[in-house]
Amino acid sequence: MAETEARGPWREAWSVFKRNYAALVGLGILALVLTTAIAGPWIYPVDPFDIVGAPKTPPGTDADAVLGTDYLGRDMLAGLVRGGRPTLMVGFFAAMIATVIGITMGALGGYYGGKVDALLGRITEFFQVLPALLFAMVLVMLFTPSLVTVTFAIGFVAWTSMARLTRAEFLRIKQLEYVRAARAIGSSNGRIIWGVILPNALPPIIVAATLATGTAILFEAGLSFLGLSDPNMMSWGMMIGSNRNYLREMWWAVTFPGVCIFLTVLAISLVGDGLNDAFNPRLRTR
């Protein structure tokens, strides 16, 4: 809602973002990855689970599988093309879940303070001290590994920093005059939290959410590497995981998906940094 209504400040942020070349490169890579993930299966319609050639074919030796095959003879390129979609989906939705939980916990705690804040703060700390990857593994193992359970598991362990950030922003903004003014015109608490304070707290939250997407992708890769991923969905992490035993014989089977993950997360980080600069007028003079 705020994005469309508050055209002015957002447009201003875009004009700063535009001048940041690293961020633009990141945005470009991200666009490429997204396009491949969405349109790839139509452009390169090879099933990544089909065995297309001899196992462990090095890249550039077989015209049917230009990037080679994995330990079972499955097409590497098909895996890379299809693997982006689950990876990005898990990353995006897990970050969204983490952001929604984090914003809710942080906003309510920061706004109401007192006992509410103490309670929500304790809950946040409880989740914060759990080893995140282990906790996510337990969650995935409790339920069957699937795209949905992996997404929720990652979202569930990754929201604490978002909650702390949102809480800090709310503590700062709720002291400001325009919040008092909003109260003085008779706005309800809900209206002040979601309609007045949150739009002003969004810039750092958006930056954090962007970076959280990168973290979630790494998490997904980590879980897949450990074998905790949807067995019916070829993802980059899963490719690394299933070929890890043959690392010394076939460098390509882990390197290509690894590079994909690396580039995607790097692109997201660059975009996040660009957004940070764009939203933070104090840093603009650098």
Binding site: A2, A6, E177, Y178, A181, R183, A184, G186, N200
Partner: peptide, 28 residues
């Protein structure tokens, strides 16, 4: 009280520079 505030009794503040929400137009 919420009905009264802004409707029957209104208030203006000391700091006009910070009393308006920066992300919305004044019309909104």
């Amino acid at each position: 009280l919420r009905e009264v505030r802004g409707h029957r009794i209104a208030m203006i503040f000391q700091e006009p520079m910070t009393s308006l929400n920066p992300v919305f137009t004044i019309g909104d």
